[in-house]
Computed example of a mutant assay.
Amino acid sequence: MGAGPDGPLDPFALAVVFGARIEYLPVDVDPSDFSGMVTMRGGRPVIVLNRSMAPERRTITLLEELCHLHYRHPVEEWDGQGRQHTNAVESEAYQTGAAALLPAVVVAKAVYKNRAAADVAREYGVSTELFEMRVKVLGLWRHYQGRNAA
């Protein structure tokens, strides 16, 4: 699933541990309209992803959906647009997924060793934006911004 505590996590391997099947939307959909969802089919979790998304976005979306399963967020509530979770539930799943993909120790080491965000993002299969969001969440933004100013 990963290369140790500091290594990249493979959410597709983790999905196997959860017993989740991964499917893709059969049609192209704008990623701003749909990224992913989890549902149950025959008692088994099925995660549906949007193939139109960049691979880095599919990675965090898959992990976010796995976090919904981990936290046992309800998956039966639907409207015409999909799952009806509160912002707090979505945030919990997203932030947990982001932390699993980019643990605090990885982000802190990268910032303090002046590693380029793009290099870390590429190594961990995430976007530069996700890396920078983790830097902010961890309170390292000032150091990150000032690291090349001296």
Rank of each mutant, 00 (worst) to 15 (best):
A110I: 05
R115K: 13
P31Q: 08
V120G: 04
Q145N: 08
R57V: 12
Y24N: 01
F18V: 00
R134M: 05
A100N: 13
R44M: 09
V126F: 00
R21Q: 15
M1A: 06
C67W: 05
G42M: 04
Y71S: 10
L101P: 04
N148T: 10
R115D: 06
I60C: 00
V48D: 02
T61R: 06
Y94L: 09
N87C: 12
E56D: 04
Q84I: 14
L49G: 07
N148E: 11
G146P: 10
D33S: 14
G97E: 03
T39Q: 15
D33E: 14
D10V: 01
Y112L: 15
N114F: 03
V16L: 14
T96Y: 03
G42K: 04
V126H: 01
E132G: 06
F131W: 10
V75G: 01
R57H: 06
Y94Q: 06
A108I: 08
M40S: 13
L130H: 02
L62G: 00
D28V: 10
W141A: 06
A99K: 07
N114G: 07
A54L: 11
V105P: 07
Y112K: 09
E123W: 07
N87R: 15
G97K: 05
H70K: 10
I47C: 00
H68D: 06
A149S: 10
R122W: 01
V27P: 08
E77Q: 11
H70Q: 11
E56V: 09
P31R: 10
V135D: 01
L9V: 15
